[in-house]
Amino acid sequence: MRIVITIIGQDRVGIVARVSNVLAEHNVNILDINQNIMNGFFNMVMIADMGGASMALKELQQLLKDEGQNIGVEIKVQHEDIFKIMHRI
């Protein structure tokens, strides 16, 4: 199963590192990263594969939500299908 991770918030050192770290620890494979900074706001979209993950989607959502709170950004994790179905026929 592929997931989409979106991170939005104030830019600071180490956001990508800390999120990637959580993913690596639980064997979630990052497939694509896209990021930009607009007016000091950090926007990142990550697509990852949970095929070999050591935890369920719900647990990962909670873990990254908590991690986001620690570093002051909002992190959302969603099943990829909601985006695919809306934008592809």
Partner: peptide, 12 residues
């Protein structure tokens, strides 16, 4: 591959 715009649009 999904575009960033599409993803951000859905979440908006």
């Amino acid at each position: 591959m999904l575009s960033v715009q599409d993803i951000l649009e859905t979440n908006r």
